[in-house]
Computed example of a mutant assay.
Amino acid sequence: MTATEDLIATADAHSAHTYHPLPVVIATADGAWMTDVEGRRYLDLLAGYSALNFGHGNRRLLDAARAQMERVTLTSRAFHHDRFGAFCEQLAALCGMETVLPMNTGAEAVETAVKTARKWGYTVKGVPAEMAKIVVAGNNFHGRTTTIISFSTDPETRADFGPYTPGFQIVPYGDLTAMRSALTENTVAVLLEPVQGEAGVLVPPAGYLPAVRELTRERNVLFVADEVQSGLGRTGRTFACEHEGVVPDMYVLGKALGGGILPVSAVVSSREVLGVFRPGEHGSTFGGNPLACAVALEVIAMLRTGEYQARAARLGERLH
């Protein structure tokens, strides 16, 4: 038995089979390249499902993490810490927004966006209690929590996990007529991926996102852009929405925000929207921890230069 076969057999014997990985066991990685336990090199076109937008072992990000690990890694939100304010301020500025609610994983950020939209709908828009609706697109992928799979159309992630969370309406992706028909006085948000990732990297028809933006503005509905996979330089822009000149009411961010080092996610919006929360209504032990903020601050600084977005666009053309 080879080293690869032995390691795979051990993993298969002792881990839940929620993934079916390729028969490759990675030992080291640098930049866009990975090396397995047999010494073979691979060009990593997956990039950690977009968590590694800056490559494996990026020196700037590793240095930022090491420096913070020597100081303090976790305080919980019971205390202030000296990296939190700067992280929130600079991420908000990068997004052209005002307020940040930090979490850990992308799915947590989507759950947070759902809670935010519902709370805003009840307390600001005046939707009757328990009547809030969120419109989503078919073939979406926003995560695998119980609430999120409730509005999935993928039987692999949904089957045998009910009962499901109500309050969602699914329309075909890219179909503006269906979107317009779905919006009612009880609709609090439209939640979309600007580019659908797990569905097959599907780009919506030209003009669709701007039309949705205008429609949601007319109907007093929040436009929530899930940029967990498509954002932070992945498509050659800081956000995929930028390709069509769209600014949503709320960004959902994750993956690359942690630089491929640790999970960092966030919901970013206006003071009016995120201001609906009061202490105790939502939170996370690790959300916005000092180590996460230190790494994310370096990610933000790197994105401000524009060089990584330009490189992604250039290499994208080359690969095409």
Rank of each mutant, 00 (worst) to 15 (best):
F277C: 03
P204L: 00
R59E: 15
Y208K: 01
R314K: 13
P155E: 03
L262C: 01
L183M: 05
Q90P: 03
S15H: 15
R311W: 13
T177Q: 15
V127P: 07
T112Y: 12
P263S: 02
G280P: 00
R234Q: 13
R304Q: 13
A313R: 10
T285G: 13
Y173V: 04
E218N: 07
A189M: 05
R60N: 11
Q196W: 02
L191G: 08
T75C: 09
A67T: 12
I26W: 01
R278T: 14
G275R: 06
L94K: 04
G254P: 04
A240T: 03
A256G: 04
T116A: 11
R83M: 15
T105R: 11
P128R: 06
L192I: 15
F286A: 13
A107Y: 11
M34K: 12
P23V: 09
R234M: 12
T153P: 00
T18A: 15
G106I: 01
E307W: 10
M250S: 00
D154W: 11
A240M: 08
L22G: 10
E89L: 14
V195W: 09
G121H: 04
T123W: 08
A67D: 14
S150G: 09
F151K: 08
R314T: 13
T165W: 13
G258R: 00
N220E: 14
A240I: 05
N140V: 00
R314M: 12
R71E: 10
F151W: 12
L262K: 04
R213Y: 11
Q229T: 13
A92Y: 07
P210A: 00
E130T: 13
I134F: 07
A178H: 12
G197P: 05
H243R: 10
L52C: 03
